[in-house]
Design a protein around this nucleic acid. Structure first.
Length: 573
DNA sequence: GTAGGGTTAG
């Protein structure tokens, strides 16, 4: 068997068994001595994720060239064995082999998958040292790595410096902004098309995802039209992304339409739809959907259960939630992890069953994280249980002493209880630890335009009218006998605390924006960024009562529909 | 032989 014939056979291998046969023949007739053959064998093993076969072949090789090394580095990255990927790359450097433009993207991909920015920067130095930053694939991988490590501006700088951008790099950059800022990803999508790039399906999925993250319904409809007009078929990934987009933009009906149109559906599509009902407080429908899914012989996974439990929690379906939680391991072989416990703490906590929630936390054997304690703290806040709030808060600060958000939340809880000395203590602690809360920001869609703003913002051309309207609104609220919590809090606090508390005004601003240009009968739609400090719920309820307008608030992926002072989403606060 | 896509907990 000659080398050429051997390579031809490898090209036609359909499984690991076939590759092993070719490998055995190559050993018998000595073709394995040909490095081209050995490399091709290694590569084929790696393609089939047969990394242990690749390893034993690699270990037995007496000669290796740069390609041999790159295939191994890539093979480890492909199967997610990042430690071996790093180790092999270090070996490359140690042996004095010059890393090439094939090897580097693999190592950079490993850094990306581990979100290992530190290692990513080290590799970037290696890239520069060897002058490989001009290589298209290397630089595209670096952009992606920086983006996924959440240092988007670094990714952007690199992206802007690239000589030739292609569809892939544009897509990476659009996706990068989808995770952090907001409208920039859609701006980039427009710019990409202006520069003559025709988006493919992967690019469209990325844009759909960006609309979902932004909750931008106007853009969502546009993107949907674009997809239809350009004849993109609704495969399982694009379809699922669109379900999620419509759900997060506030229309569970449109999400369901997409779901019904999809020919192929898998556990991810079903879970996305269950989550969609959950955000919207439609717990019963989420449960019905879960049963439909089981009837279609689709096996639920961890995420399905997170979505389902969240749906129960959000709709106050306590019995059902407990039943699903208890059945997940016994009936569906899905072991509860910290996320499922967090849902349960939220479910029990909101219902006032704080002791039960605490017992659950104490009994759990999986590692506790800050979001679990945040759920507990949130429940304590609703029910005014200071004793348990302190316990939750201490665990929270122990886990994340550097997170300014926790200090702010805590001082707000103490402020509400009138414990000003403790408020001051936490403020001092923040100052001493040099922690500063990043101001929150909010956005809103009015008449198909999007406005983004933060506290004290005067960038809007109608800013003067908005502030006037805001004052009228506050006066109306006062006259109607409503005193927003924040104003009560502001009475006796120090200047610095007052400043922090004023973040909540962004919510008032959102409402003021909403009052301009929305036709009668149309709901006022507010998307609220997760990081905005404060609670928009009380305020929205009051405004909807006074203005006799319905309001939809999106708050951390939950939707709250208010009408005449009542929150109809089923959530109870 | 190298790069980009979907679901989840406060």
């Amino acid at each position: 068997m000659g080398a050429e014939f051997c390579i031809d056979l490898l090209l036609r291998c359909r499984n690991v068994f076939h590759i092993r046969q070719v490998h055995a023949n190559a050993l018998v007739n000595g073709t394995i001595q040909d490095l081209v053959v050995a490399n091709k064998l290694l590569y084929t093993y790696a393609q089939h994720k047969a990394i242990s076969d690749a390893c034993s072949l690699f270990d037995g090789l007496t000669i290796r060239d740069p390609k041999t090394w790159s295939v191994m580095v890539g093979g480890f990255a492909k199967v997610g064995d990042h430690a071996s990927c790093y180790a092999t790359f270090r070996e490359v450097l140690r042996c004095g082999v010059t890393p090439d433009n094939y090897t580097l993207p693999f190592v950079i991909r490993a850094c990306r998958d581990r979100k290992d920015l530190q290692m990513g920067c080290v590799i970037h130095d290696v890239v520069l040292k060897h002058g490989l930053h001009l290589d298209h694939f290397v630089s595209a991988s670096l952009v992606d790595m920086y983006a996924k490590c959440m240092v988007v501006e670094d990714a952007r700088r690199l992206f802007e410096r690239m000589f030739s951008k292609d569809l892939v790099t544009w897509t990476v950059m659009i996706g990068a902004y989808a995770d952090c800022n907001a409208y920039e990803s859609l701006v980039l999508f427009d710019r990409m098309r202006e520069e003559g790039f025709v988006p493919d399906k992967v690019a469209m999925v990325t844009v759909v995802n960006a609309c979902a993250k932004l909750g931008a319904m106007h853009r969502a409809r546009f993107v949907n039209e674009y997809i239809v007009r350009n004849g993109f078929s609704l495969d399982v990934i694009l379809g699922t992304a669109m379900i999620d987009m419509y759900a997060k933009c506030g229309s569970v009906e449109s999400a369901r339409e997409v779901f019904d149109r999809m020919k192929e559906k898998n556990v991810i599509s079903w879970s996305a739809m269950i989550a969609a009902y959950g955000y919207h407080g439609r717990g019963k429908e989420a449960i019905d959907f879960f049963h439909m899914m089981l009837n279609c012989a689709i096996l639920p996974n961890r995420i399905t259960f997170v979505s389902l439990l969240h749906a129960c929690s959000h709709a106050g379906l306590i019995e059902e939630g407990l039943r699903f939680f208890n059945s997940m391991w016994e009936e569906h072989a899905v072991r509860p992890d910290v996320k499922h416990y967090t849902c349960m703490v939220d479910l029990l906590g909101r219902a006032g069953k704080l002791d039960e929630a605490l017992r659950l936390i104490e009994a759990m054997t999986v590692e506790k994280d800050e979001r679990l304690w945040s759920a507990m703290l949130g429940a304590c806040r609703i029910h005014g249980n200071m004793e348990l709030a302190e316990k939750a808060a201490n665990s929270l600060l122990e886990l994340q002493p550097q997170n300014p958000g926790h200090y702010v939340l805590l001082s707000n809880i103490y402020a509400k209880a009138g414990k000003w000395e403790t408020v001051a203590k936490f403020r001092d602690m923040m100052t001493r630890r040099k922690l500063k809360k990043v101001p929150g920001w909010t956005w809103i869609e009015v008449d198909n335009k999007t406005y983004q703003f933060s506290v004290g913002d005067r960038s809007h051309p109608q800013s003067k009218e908005i502030y006037e309207m805001l004052m009228i609104l506050i006066k109306k609220l006062e006259m109607a006998g409503y005193v927003p919590d924040i104003d009560f809090v502001l009475q006796d606090v120090e200047e610095e605390v007052k400043k922090e508390m004023l973040y909540t005004h962004s919510e008032k601003l959102a409402i003021a924006f909403g009052l301009i240009g929305i036709p009668e009968g149309e709901p006022i739609r507010i998307s609220k960024n997760l990081r905005v400090c404060g609670d928009c719920h009380t305020f929205s309820k009051m405004v909807s009562a006074i203005m006799r307008r319905s309001i939809i608030v999106r708050d951390a992926n939950r939707f709250h529909h208010f009408s005449n002072g009542t929150c109809s989403c089923g959530d109870y606060w």
